[in-house]
Amino acid sequence: MNDSNITRLELISENRMFGGLQRVYSHHSKLCNGTMRFAIYLPPAALSGNKVPVLTYLSGLTCTEDNVTAKAGAQRMASELGLIFVAPDTSPRGQNIPGEDDSYDFGSAAGFYLDATQEPWSTAYNMYSYITRELQEVIAANFETADLSRQGITGHSMGGHGALTIHLKNPDLFKSVSAFAPICAPMQCPWGEKALSGYLGDNRDNWTAYDATELVRQSPSKATILVDQGSADNFLKEQLKPELLQQACQESGQSLSLRLQEGYDHSYYFIASFIEDHLRHHAKALNT
Rank of each mutant, 00 (worst) to 15 (best):
P171H: 10
T7C: 13
A285C: 05
A87F: 02
S4K: 14
F85P: 03
D277Q: 12
H281A: 07
G82H: 09
Q22W: 05
P88K: 05
T165D: 05
K30I: 13
Y128H: 15
N50S: 14
S4T: 15
M17V: 15
G60F: 08
A141K: 11
M127H: 09
Y128S: 04
L61H: 13
L168Y: 09
T213S: 05
Q218I: 12
E80D: 08
Q136K: 12
P53T: 08
G230K: 04
P186L: 05
T69K: 12
D202T: 15
H167I: 09
N15T: 15
A124D: 05
V216N: 02
I12W: 11
S257H: 12
N67E: 13
Y268F: 07
L31I: 11
H266S: 09
K237R: 15
A212D: 06
D102N: 07
R150G: 01
A146Q: 03
V138Y: 07
D115N: 15
P171A: 11
F18C: 08
S197R: 15
L42G: 07
E276M: 08
S273Q: 15
C249M: 03
L58V: 06
N234S: 14
C63D: 08
V86E: 07
E144W: 07
N203P: 01
G19I: 10
S48A: 15
I271G: 07
I183W: 04
N96Q: 14
A74M: 12
V216C: 12
E262W: 01
S103E: 14
I6D: 08
F18V: 10
V216Y: 08
G159S: 02
P88G: 11
L9M: 03
P98M: 08
H282I: 04
D101V: 04
Q254Y: 05
G192Q: 00
A46V: 00
A285I: 01
R204L: 09
A185R: 05
G201M: 00
E119G: 03
L81F: 01
T7W: 09
L200R: 07
Y104A: 15
A74L: 08
L215Y: 11
I166D: 09
R16W: 08
L42H: 12
K284S: 08
A212T: 10
N67W: 09
A179V: 02
G107W: 03
A110K: 00
W121V: 00
F85T: 10
T7V: 15
M17K: 15
Y113D: 04
G253K: 06
K51D: 00
K71P: 04
R76T: 08
H27D: 14
Y128I: 01
T123A: 13
Y125T: 03
I84E: 07
M17G: 09
T35D: 10
A110L: 06
P120V: 03
D233H: 06
M187R: 14
I166L: 14
G152V: 06
L42R: 13
A87W: 10
D265N: 03
A116K: 00
M187A: 14
N67T: 10
H281Y: 04
G155T: 12
G60A: 05
S13V: 11
S4M: 14
Y199R: 04
S129V: 10
A163F: 00
R93P: 01
K30M: 11
A78P: 01
E119W: 07
D228A: 02
L114N: 04
E80I: 13
G152W: 01
S48P: 02
F112W: 06
L9Q: 07
Q250H: 11
E144I: 04
G111N: 06
